Computed example of a mutant assay.
Amino acid sequence: MAASGLARPSSVTVPVARRTAVRAVGTLLAVELLAVALYLRVTNTGVLAPRYTLYPFVWINVGVWVLLRRPAVAAARRRRLLAGAVAVAYFLLLAVAGGLLGGGGMSMPARIAWLSPGWGPALLYTGDWVSLTVIPFEVVGYAVLATLVYTVVLAGARSALAGLLGVATCVGCLWPFGAALLAVLGGVGSPLATAVPGVAYDLSTALFLLTVGMLYWAAGRAA
């Protein structure tokens, strides 16, 4: 009797935890959809392809989920410094490849572009030496990839090869988002807007998910 009494709480805790997680995810998705609906209503903006409006939430939600579940790796201070340096370099590489960070030009004051939630609000700045195009979901996505690379490098040098493969994958696939933002800011009828194929959005998101999954798997295996 005592044994069965002790086993009962664990059998109840698991379903409760799952229900709590499902409710949290459902609430998050509802808030995101509500934010998009409010934005479309307030700005009187039409949606030609709903999936492009929702892709930023795929990046953000998957990224947060992976970060919450990534393994903790114990390592010496020297290894942590090395892994941190690799992660920072990886983030900067993605930022440049994705159009978030670039060279300067004609100096312009910083401004906010009120794009669809996830795409915006975007911070735009051009200085004499540097230009910034801060798109929320890109920043989150890059930070997630950099954190996973940090974890992989921390776990072992052999697993770091997965991070290098992630660089090759994402650097080649993230450029369409920077071009797409310029197309939006330049106008739907601009030459740049017509030059960006719609499939670029789908490909970039698919490759982002592939790279996240690969790095997450490598981190879990090495930990």
Rank of each mutant, 00 (worst) to 15 (best):
A3L: 08
F137D: 07
M108Q: 15
P71H: 12
G98F: 02
V188C: 03
E138F: 11
P109A: 01
V58W: 09
L132C: 02
G102W: 00
G5I: 00
N61H: 12
V86Q: 01
L6P: 00
V36I: 15
L94K: 06
P121Y: 02
I135M: 12
F208R: 01
S116I: 14
T151C: 14
Y39K: 04
L29R: 05
W175M: 12
A206L: 13
F57P: 08
R80S: 14
V196Y: 08
A160E: 06
F91E: 09
L81D: 08
W65E: 09
T43S: 12
A157I: 11
S116P: 01
V88W: 13
L210M: 07
L210H: 04
L40N: 10
R158K: 05
T147R: 13
M108A: 15
V31H: 01
V130F: 08
A85R: 12
A110D: 03
L48S: 10
Y150C: 03
L148M: 07
A223I: 10
L154W: 05
A143V: 09
L165W: 03
V171A: 11
G163C: 04
W65S: 14
V199E: 14
V22A: 15
M108W: 09
L124K: 04
L181Y: 02
S107D: 13
A179C: 06
V25L: 14
L54S: 05
A2F: 00
G141N: 04
P197Y: 07
A160Q: 06
V31T: 00
Y52R: 11
V152I: 03
V134L: 15
A183T: 03
F208K: 07
V88I: 15
I60P: 02
A168T: 07
R80D: 06
V14Y: 02
T205N: 07
P136A: 10
R79L: 04
V144Q: 05
G213T: 06
A222H: 05
P191Y: 06
A113N: 04
A155W: 03
V88C: 14
G99L: 02
A223C: 03
W119D: 01
R77V: 15
A146H: 10
T194Y: 06
R158P: 05
V12I: 13
P71C: 12
A89P: 01
V171Q: 00
Y216M: 06
A157F: 07
V96T: 03
A3G: 01
A7E: 02
L29D: 06
Y52D: 13
T20G: 09
L185I: 10
V31A: 15
T147A: 15
A157T: 14
F208E: 03
V36H: 02
L132I: 05
D128N: 11
G84N: 12
V184H: 00
A113L: 13
G103K: 01
L154T: 15
A49C: 00
V88Q: 02
G120Q: 08
D128W: 05
F208T: 10
P71F: 13
M1V: 10
Y150K: 02
G156L: 04
V184F: 05
Y142Q: 09
R77K: 13
Y150F: 13
A21H: 07
V47T: 14
A72S: 13
L29V: 15
S10Q: 05
A200H: 05
V42S: 00
G163A: 07
F57E: 07
V196M: 09
M108D: 11
P136K: 09
M108E: 14
